[in-house]
Design a binder for these strands. Structure first.
Lengths: 205, 205, 205, 205
DNA sequence: GATGAATGAGTTTTCATTCAT
DNA sequence: GATGAATGAAAACTCATTCAT
């Protein structure tokens, strides 16, 4: 490999064609996972669904875990995009409305990825990373930290950290429940109001 | 769900020896699961760890899932026992102290089963039952429903259901986080105080 | 063991109690084989069906093959008994009527053991003994040899042997087909008449 | 019934290499079956004998039964080919000579596959399809029906069906006996003459 | 003699991964 | 770069048989 080639590769580590392949494979994986479950998601099955050879699949992913990881990252990223947008849109809202707007958006986004999320959470052995959506949680934490700073600026660092740690886990958990496994009888809107309320008052102290 | 052998042995209630085998197998399974993870937990591996033939393993458990299920049920049951005791002990406490006592006990119990719990939650594909500790949640719900009835009797049924649904998921999630993955910097005691606070105020409305 | 005991054992190699066990086991095996097929006929299943311990089963039979072999022998023997009776009853009949009476009896007897016979023929790997009913064939051969001697005494030995060899296989095969797998449209009576006819004329030369 | 791989390869008709693998596996299976019996014919044993990985074996055959079925079908087909040829060659013969020529060919062909046939008939559990060579019987039936039409055109349909049903089973059985288990003393030629005779006269009525 | 818990070799089958073309 | 045939370690599970009680 010439130095030139290496340089140009460093600049665009992912070629246009490669990206196409990667996408095809990931989309196929998402389809299989959502539709047929993790048990059916063999690498060969995914390659067939992507209409790509199994050899090519292994050209773009080192192993199966990497595919699942990319899938997870992708959901994270897509939900994250919507979340971030909602956060910006809510910057001028008062606490309650801002939080609710963000949570509604989050639940909407999660619902839109229900298929993969259910499979990822229920069927995929995660290998020691309890949390399927850590980036979401991080982002949600940052946003909330900002809100608290603005609305209750006096809280000591340690105290805030502890409150955020708990509140974020709980909120994300609540949103997942509302999005993915809400029982028949319970009203989505009311549940979201309640989460909002708990979150706001839980952070106010 | 019952060990395979039980069926064909209804004649004599439960043999001492059978229970011994069941226990050896379950303890071996717990050890392997906690130490080497779910991926390493093949039935043959468990049998070897238990120093029992693979044939015997299948005499007492119909299939691998049954072993995992027993493991889960066992943790559930043991945690449940401590939880129930704490609940009874706290019946005369005021809301805040009662709740805190219960939650402290719960976190203690969860910590004591850290090994299996981490593996069960992180690595075992749950197969559409997102929740590893449903019995705990149910019991916690009943207890809390009682507390609310006593301390805030006027709340309408629907409203209470919604609040309980959310609060229980969130509380259990928070306790699991505190017990199993609390970051270095955060103080266990303070976190528990906060959860208590959030729970109590979250239910008061 | 005293000499006396040995002697008395030689006289009655099978004790009354033992015979009872042997029978229970064989009957259970027959039931399982006829009802659930060879695949379900594990030694443990047979022991359970016989309400006998697996240990006892192996006390009376050296291995599984021996049980199947006894089963086969038993059907053979029971069919044989009826066959022999019919043969004696037909000694004064003319050729055609004698043969037909015997064949009707044979088909009746085979039909009565349909369950086991079907399983033995279709499902049991016979281990190099192509014929499930060799004793029947032998007996049928003897009877027919007699008939031929009487009705066509002049036939040379070699010729007779060849004819009997073929005719007996064919007849037994035909009777099995009529008894066990006769298609809807075909009349049992007419088929038996035809077999009789073919057999008689086939042997006459 | 078709090798597993075929399905996913419809794009290109039939790869030379695939056929090679299928053949190697079938030949290995035939060798093991003929030499060591059905009990020894595990899929791993067959793969080893074929010098093919067990994975490849399952690439070309969905399961063990499919291998046995292919083996059976193959014998059937090869015997059938010779049989059909003989039938065409004998169309101008008179009944007796035509039938004899066909039967001689049939016995020859069966003898040539003795190894597998013996194993298939004696050792392989047939799973409710008593007959190992149904295609042969069908073909033989068609041929014979033709002969009878020509030589004894007046026979009513029902009567002919009954006669054919019996005669074909008996003939095939006789040919198998002659080919596979004829006792020392009996002359092949004479036996074939006799079968011919019986068949011809048995159908004439 | 009777029991039945225990055994473990052996079976079928899957699927992530490699590598020659 | 792409292909896909081939691989083989490993998994879940069965069942004939043994032997201590």
């Amino acid at each position: 490999m010439t130095p030139a080639a290496m340089t140009s590769q460093r600049r665009r580590p992912v070629q246009r064609r490669s990206q196409e392949m990667v996408d095809r494979i990931l989309e196929a994986a998402a389809r299989v996972l959502g539709r047929e479950g993790y048990a059916a998601m063999s690498t060969n099955r995914v390659a067939a669904e992507a209409d790509v050879s199994i050899g090519s699949l292994y050209r773009y992913f080192n192993d199966k875990a990497e595919i699942v990881e990319h899938l997870r990252a992708r959901v994270n990223q897509e939900v994250l995009a919507e979340l971030t947008e909602a956060i910006f849109a809510s910057l001028d809202d008062d606490a309650r409305h801002g939080v609710e707007r963000v949570l509604v958006t989050l639940v909407d986004a999660l619902e839109r990825h229900r298929g993969i999320l259910v499979a990822l959470i229920d069927e995929v052995p995660l290998g020691s990373q309890a949390n399927t959506l850590p980036e979401i949680e991080r982002q949600l934490t940052e946003f909330t930290r900002l809100f608290v700073h603005r609305h209750a600026p006096g809280m000591p660092r340690d105290e805030l950290d502890a409150r955020l740690y708990l509140a974020m886990g709980m909120t994300l958990n609540a949103c997942l429940r509302i999005a993915l496994e809400r029982p028949e009888g319970l009203d989505r809107g009311r549940l979201l109001e309640l989460v909002t309320e708990m979150l706001v008052s839980g952070l106010d102290g």
